[in-house]
Design a protein around this nucleic acid. Sequence first.
RNA 1: GGCUGAGUGGCAGAGUGGUUAUGCAGCGGCCUGCAAAGCCGUGUACAGCGGUUCGAUUCCGCUCUCAGCCUCCA
Length: 463
Amino acid sequence: MGQLKIFNSLYRTKVLFQPIETGKVGIYVCGMTVYDFCHIGHARVMVVFDVVARYFKYLGYEVKYVRNITDIDDKIIARANEAGEDFSVLTTRFIKEMHHDEADLNVLRPDLEPLATESIDDIIRMINVLIERENAYVGDNGDVYYAVESFEKYGQLSGRKLDDMNAGERVEVDTNKRNPFDFVLWKPAKAGEPSWPSPWGEGRPGWHIECSAMATCCLGDQIDIHGGGMDLQFPHHENEIAQSEAATGVHYVNTWMHNGFVRIDDEKMSKSLGNFFTVREVLKKYRGEEIRFFVLSSHYRSPLNYSEEQLNESRSALERLYTAIRDVEPKRHHIKSDYIERFEEAMNDDFNTAKAISVMFECANDINKQRSLDPEQASLMAGDLLQMAEPLGLLAQDPNEYLQSTTGSDAAISNDDIDSQVTKRLQAKADKDWALADQIRDELKAQGVIVEDKGKETSWRRA
RNA sequence: GGCUGAGUGGCAGAGUGGUUAUGCAGCGGCCUGCAAAGCCGUGUACAGCGGUUCGAUUCCGCUCUCAGCCUCCA
């Protein structure tokens, strides 16, 4: 086995991965705040870390993959108020929707999905420790704050110093804080807001503390890998380190992984900018696997520019891959082929999925060449192709079913109607009525159906 | 102002101190009733300027441009 290297945001270099416990890996990823549908940026996190977890399994690791759900915060409360419903009704609904989107993207469920609201005891316990150790204090307004100056290494992850940051440039400084970068651990509830009892009165946790508490609770004081979007690097993950390491005295995370953003017109896709596409919307025109391929077609740390043109290319690319294994019986190799070697080499290099996929295409090309020359060889190569696709979560469907599946959730001509047209065309062909045969083919094409003749047989697919 | 990261052929996107990425699109050919799929062939790409080197797209420096973080955001 090659050696897996991962780019560690903490050191800004690729580092050989060393598990805390041999053969095992614990992964914690910051998941969704559930007050709305997932957008493509969320899809990227889900897919990227799904591949990370899958690849570790592929390498033979015992994986414990934890991805939390933030189900209490200001925005959730605001949304619930707008909708006139209890916040938990809202969050339960969007958790369900999130799982729905994940399934469409062939994202495997994490092993654990802890909820902030079910971790209140752990959160309170951790805040207590922080107060005892004088890393936290209660402000005049009743908020409990973390004192960033009490943590020497504050800024290590984001590579910034407290003095260099422009506090108050964009947001007014809260005078209850000792340092403008102090952040809330516990917040008293206003009338009518959801709250939990605590030593500091009825209230709710701040955002950062929940992840520290849940990660520690699920994976222990020290964890192998912690991931999330780049925008979480500061302040969220910086604050997590400060909280956890102050509370446990142990090095919190060995490897920090951050994925790049999805962009639209070279601008970050985000909720605050309002320029986002939900997974739901995109699924109206594209298959889930096409979105997944699109995400994996570039390296996870690079920006990913969203466009229909890109999605169309992903569609063509998947068509090529599925077409290659259509009508070939895949067989598993006993030895590791050159493809697999190169695939693993790419994946071992910081999960270079773009490069890994290029190996898959070379394999597909060879299958196409060998298909008629040496079917046995083609079968073995198809086995290789599927072996490579598995950790990427691609090519999991039956090729013909995939190729004939509708290209989105929008209404389309039914399979039955296509079949009857194809039958009509076969008759026309038998009659050598080429004009009619071509007309039927053109009509089907106008409805997104491509007809392919192979001798006396005719197959079709949707494009 | 501070701190990151990036600039590759028509598009997308890997990578490398000297040799073909890969996909899509294009062009020519084979196959086909015609197509489609597939196969074969086909592209003077590495922001600019200097430097190191026998040789740099790849290393170093500077310049320009873009993006991100410093507020909630995946």
